[in-house]
Design a protein around this nucleic acid. Structure first.
Lengths: 147, 147
DNA sequence: AGGTATTAGTTCATTTTGTAACTAACAACG
DNA sequence: CGTTGTTAGTTACAAAATGAACTAATACCT
């Protein structure tokens, strides 16, 4: 009846692109470190932005606290981070990378950067700019649209 | 150490955008019809492109056969589609929407179109073109990049 | 102080997904 | 025919994601 194609439905297209582009890198951190996506994200945050609490990570990465909680637990088992009690407020714990965690972070971040460069090589400079821009806008504005 | 930001990592950004943009519409088909994403995709395919087998849907939507199998079973329970045996080759069954399925498809597709228009309203015409283009390229080329 | 509300974080039950093994029907080739 | 291979689709089991209810510590308010 209408001319509405799935290919034109932005959420669908974004999901396809997201899945497709995540795959190769996911294989990397999964096979090499047995990590899940949230774990890699938490690790990266600590490495890139320094020690912080789980709460901080929730905010910065817009991840739900249960996700972060589980990722932290998993990374602790892998001896990649440790928790430090904060006497000032014993509810929150400062998270800090161990040497092992730092090494893994460095390796993964380097790999991510290389992989990212390969992806971006598909586009011209102006395309890259616009793409980046549009995605940022979608990421933080789409939430406010109602059906 | 480096200036590599998570915001610049394309897979991350794509995931954020995909999740953010999928949310509102997902709520719609979940709350109103108790559907999962794959179910809505299957439904849409049948509605938009006519009766076909599960196999056809797998190919067209690049979905794994188990996902489609489960979605078809769920849609059958909801009385939105029915299976028709093909005497020519009794391995495959033609899937066809019921009246209920057609009504739901129409409603969902209309909602999807409206929602899509709202999303796209964030961008200028040239931005839309480039965004669409880039996403399509990522969706079908990223797979071939190795880490 | 004492009751109520918040906040950080965890746990548990359920849903969803992914993977591999399975059945059933057909094809192809000697 | 009959054995081997292939295709459509399902099922069974493990891995992962989700959400609500929970604990513990602190803040707030009168």
């Amino acid at each position: 009846m209408p001319d509405f194609e799935l290919q034109n439905f932005l959420p669908y297209l974004l999901n396809q692109a997201a899945e497709s582009s995540s795959m190769a890198f996911r294989t990397y951190y999964r096979d090499k470190y047995g990590m899940l996506r949230t774990e890699w994200q938490v690790l990266f945050h600590l490495w890139r932005y320094g020690d912080m609490t789980a709460r901080d990570i929730c905010d910065r990465a817009s991840l739900h606290k249960t996700k972060v909680s589980r990722a932290v637990a998993a990374l602790e088992v892998k001896r990649m981070l440790e928790r430090r009690e904060m006497p000032a407020d014993r509810r929150n714990e400062m998270l800090a990378l161990t040497r092992i965690g730092r090494k893994a972070s460095e390796d993964l971040s380097r790999a991510a950067e290389v992989y990212n460069a390969q992806l971006l090589a598909m586009f011209s400079a102006p395309e890259r700019t616009i793409l980046h821009n549009c995605l940022l806008r979608i990421a933080d504005q789409a939430r406010s649209i109602r059906t």
